[in-house]
Design a protein around this nucleic acid. Structure first.
Lengths: 338, 338
DNA sequence: TAAATTTGTGCAATCGTTCCCGACAACGTT
DNA sequence: AACGTTGTCGGGAACGATTGCACAAATTTA
């Protein structure tokens, strides 16, 4: 089967030692031009490719980074992965994917798996179920570079890249208020997620700045982040059953936003008459939805790019990095049906 | 930084040789129970993890598979990747992603890159631009296991997993005919792609079986498969400019289908009055679209799973496999706006 | 009791590559 | 003429793990 040609084969064929061949290929100054040319020509002729695994063993690095996201089939993450991949390949790194499907257990298993397969670093967006992050803290303490994006763990001191969730949430909520809605509910995912906290805070700030009070009955959490239709539906039904039924909802997630529209369709809730919606989403076909959706769009591609650049910087740093930064990128509000 | 514990550390600490430790960890019968227990206990205590790279070098396999798709941010592929990942992780393989963005050059580079990083096998769906497949043939001839899915290369003799594109296209076209349309156009991607050929053939068969003739002016190719809005728009404009303007379009791809709806929206073409559409798409929020879309859905997750199973079977085969099969999975027709 | 066998362990090669040393010419310097 | 430089190259250890073989000690067999 598939017998790759090694440096030894070249050495034997040319009557040289492996060290000379190695040096010739790496273009060291201490090899004569003649020998160098001979080796390079022959190497090209027989199609020599250095064995990356042997290199990895020697250099103690694998030139690959692990990515932990909840779901690839999610427009935000697939765009972020696009950004990750664009940088990684340029820098010669492989991208190894893993999905948590919003499950804490799968997150632990995947992180362990990636670490044991010796990735050089980790790009992590936490699952919605994750509360305990010791599986990551442990690896980070041991020296494994980690960069968080989107759903970050504040307890771990490292680089983080996120969207300006608070501002985005504020703008979306303010837009609803400007459009005349006063009883604005908030549908979000699990309450410990960084993005949930930030978006909730933006929502509350917008209400307060416009003289509206925050009603806790109006705030509903979906721990599975819209992955389970029934969960989303039941939360919306709870909102509808309130005495003072809300007239608008600010939805805090991609899957939740489309999930919301599905529920509306099934329950025959017309929008925006019965209820208006504004929500976070990175879907690129939102214009085609009916009812159409005013949305907050995150610069997912940019976030992925930045996070990867920062991770590679950590990986390739000569001295341990002590100063970490959190990059916050602005979101964009797309007003539709306005 | 991060100094992983090796088998040597254990050997030194316990006053044994590395071979004994290795054998104890692998639970060989020729190690005494006492030594075995001592080694196992100590290994657990200090958290020993075997170095996968050293293993790879020795075993000459990396336990990773490369995946080549056009775009992750595409519902069909993200679902397929989901299926790929589910099997791969179960079997202890890593999934290394790469995207061609429908470009032949990027496909060549990515395939080369993956091969040089010694993946154990390749899961490939060709880019829409790819006509020459010598970059794959070369690797395949050298013995690298490859399994194609979705967009396959007939010239390479290996396993293939596809949807029943012809039948799916037939059903969608027949549905349009049953709905009363007679001048049915066909919008598809580049003409050399296997899926284009098969879907075209199903489209033509449906027309003929219902006594309609095939009009070549009605068949439009978008070489970029819907990645470029202007391309899609211009093709649709060509259709609209025909003397006998079509009254329906059968669209042969995910991105093309949503692209088509965008064009309709921008050109103020109302559906289905001005033009009806039925198309291939795996988007899971199609119900929310307006106008809604009758669609052919492929079992993307299943296709990914099957392809991965077949690839791992090839990788782990003791003797070279000579018999290859092509699995064809049925599509599902979702009738909407009917 | 001596020989044969079993049991438990260590040595060393191997995977492909790099790199520290050391060897040994052919020079140039005093 | 003796010595130091410089330019080329090879030997061999190392990265972490596995494994065939050798070998001692313990046990069984003749």
């Amino acid at each position: 089967m598939f017998e790759p040609v090694t440096i030894k084969d070249i050495a034997k064929a040319l009557g040289l030692s492996t060290s000379t061949v190695s040096r010739a290929l790496r273009d060291t100054h201490e090899i004569s031009a003649a020998t160098k040319k001979m080796v390079l020509d022959y190497a090209k002729e027989i199609g020599y490719q250095p064995n990356p695994i042997a290199l990895s063993l020697k250099e103690r690095r694998s030139k690959s980074i692990g990515v932990v996201v909840s779901e690839v089939a999610n427009s935000y993450f697939s765009q972020a992965i696009n950004g990750i991949e664009s940088i990684a390949y340029d820098r010669g790194y492989h991208v190894i994917l893993s999905q948590t499907h919003e499950s804490y257990d799968r997150e632990v298993v995947n992180v362990q798996h990636l670490a044991s397969r010796s990735v050089d670093g980790l790009l992590v967006s936490l699952s919605s179920q994750t509360k305990d992050i010791s599986h990551l803290k442990q690896l980070h303490d041991k020296g494994l570079p980690i960069v968080f994006f989107d759903r970050v763990a504040e307890e771990i001191n490292t680089h983080k890249v996120i969207a300006n969730n608070e501002k985005g949430a504020y703008e979306a909520t303010a837009h609803l208020i400007r459009s005349g809605y006063r009883r604005i509910a908030h549908l979000t995912s699990s309450n410990q997620l960084s993005i949930s906290i930030e978006r909730l805070s933006g929502y509350e700030a917008a209400l307060q700045d416009h003289g509206l009070s925050v009603n806790n009955d109006y705030i509903k959490h979906c721990p599975h982040g819209g992955m389970i239709y029934e969960e989303t539906e039941s939360k919306i039904k709870e909102l509808l059953a309130l005495d003072e039924k809300p007239d608008a909802i600010f939805v805090a997630g991609d899957r939740l936003s489309t999930g919301c529209l599905s529920v509306f369709k099934n329950l025959n809730i017309s929008m925006p008459d019965d209820m208006a919606i504004a929500g976070f989403s990175n879907s690129d076909v939102l214009d085609l939805f009916n009812p159409s959706l005013t949305s907050v769009r995150q610069p997912a591609f940019e976030i992925g790019k930045l996070a990867t650049q920062m991770l590679i910087q950590l990986i390739e740093a000569k001295y341990p990095v002590e100063e970490f930064e959190k990059k916050v990128l602005d979101t964009e509000l797309f007003v539709r049906n306005a």
